[in-house]
Amino acid sequence: MHEWALAEGVITTATRFAEENGITEVTEVVVVVGELQQVEHEVLAFAFEHLKTPLFENARFMLESQPARFKCRNCGNEWSFTSQGMTEDVSEAIHFVPEMAHVYIKCSECGSPDFEVKEGRGVWLATIRGVKGDE
């Protein structure tokens, strides 16, 4: 996923959560990102710094990466994602739309394109910590 879109989404979602729960100062945000998203940590950290509002002035943004694992639906083989050997175009396609993995990656045993992404896909906001207004 594109880092700037991700940072914007995290800030919007965390802001909404803070408002709903009376949090006036966010101190920590933990985002888990699947490896297949191919998010560059430094770019994401830069985007957070650029986009953050006063609510996040003292917030620590933490990014946890979950390795991507695939399981072939044809032969049951399991293997890990690697971007080694990928062309820049393919890598970029998977970065923008990770489902493009199904276009360019095949089972390392039988060559089938029908595989399941067992882990390492998607993005979610795992933790938001903060200070409530009346504390």
Binding site: M1, E8, G9, T12, T13, G122, V123, L125
Partner: peptide
């Protein structure tokens, strides 16, 4: 918890 991508779609 939440998928932060959903919040961006509204803005887009």
């Amino acid at each position: 918890m939440s998928d932060p991508r959903l919040a961006v779609i509204e803005k887009r």
